[in-house]
Design a protein around this nucleic acid. Sequence first.
DNA 1: ATTTTTTGATTGACCCGTCAATCAAAAAAT
DNA 2: ATTTTTTGATTGACGGGTCAATCAAAAAAT
Lengths: 198, 198
Amino acid sequence: MPRIGAEPLRRQSLIDAAIATIGEQGSLDVSVKRIAGRAGMSPALAFHYFGDKDEIILATMRHLLREFSRQVTEGLKHADGPRGRVEAVIEASFGADQFARTTIAAWLVFYLHAYSSPPAARLLGIYTRRLRSNLVDALRQLLPVAEAAVAAETLAAIIDGLYVRHALRTGGPDAGKAIRICRTCLDRHLGLAEGERA
Amino acid sequence: MPRIGAEPLRRQSLIDAAIATIGEQGSLDVSVKRIAGRAGMSPALAFHYFGDKDEIILATMRHLLREFSRQVTEGLKHADGPRGRVEAVIEASFGADQFARTTIAAWLVFYLHAYSSPPAARLLGIYTRRLRSNLVDALRQLLPVAEAAVAAETLAAIIDGLYVRHALRTGGPDAGKAIRICRTCLDRHLGLAEGERA
DNA sequence: ATTTTTTGATTGACCCGTCAATCAAAAAAT
DNA sequence: ATTTTTTGATTGACGGGTCAATCAAAAAAT
């Protein structure tokens, strides 16, 4: 066997190249040729490892989702108290890896792709539900059930909105500003006045 | 001159068909053939009127932007007081025309398109700045300048986020719920406690 | 008759996916 | 240790198909 163990490396290279290419272009309309070229191999090799283009796309989505989940889980591990758990989710969302423009553009592309691709929709559904339950579970210990649901929906929307604005507007909010906006909104929902929180 | 007035009708038909096709597919990767077919004409006629595909896309964006601006302006006309002006912007954003799933999907597609198309970015920039100034101007009469800026950024992000979630998640927030979330957030930023506003 | 509207046919480019063939390293056999 | 065999890694070339855009000419209206 030659160069044993090349497959996982190649797959990862292709996924990285796919994120970069898709994110830079802001579209799924990128040829396998360009992705493979960026990863330093011929298109045929990409097909050899992934079968077809759809599978390249799905594998790339899975990688993005897994990476995000990993960071959230990591943040939750060191969080203490419900408020800390909410903040951990927020901070994971705006961590350097997740908040890179290219990464966010890729996320948005996949959001839209899910609009017409059932497998992609299934993947995103899992992520969405997990994120939501993380937020709701923590908020329920701080607020009445109804308000917790509203607060979770609001926070989730703000996060998504800040993503959109960061990725698409030059001079959009940076990570620090984004986190501050989320924290402020959380404070207000928890009924704390200016500067009142620990 | 024969068939006077055919051109504007054809152009409008093509723009409507473009919104529908792009919105349904959630992608700009739709052929001129399909758009023209949906509008009841041959692809060649679309090229005759618009020159190339990019111009079809840009004209479609301009139409969406103009329509949105029209609705905001209309709402502002009947609004009284700064709080009313903020709510007018919110309500225009979630009006039936703007909050239709297909329309929102088309919006998101154009957001992403702007990511790699300077002309599209220019168009969206105009819209973004106008929306922002509408919000900031009204909020400045209700809050200190710094807080007004944060509140505007927050509201704008929430609106965008709710758009994303409504268009892409089955069972996402409907218009009523979206408006309620925005109002609640606005209340909190204005420092009003539960049920305190007029 | 002239001008606009409309389209069928065509072209060149590009893309996805396949396939046969090549290459190089590991395993087996001697 | 040397040779042979096996097998994954890799690619160039190609087919079927689609798309954007062009063009010449027909249809329709004035």
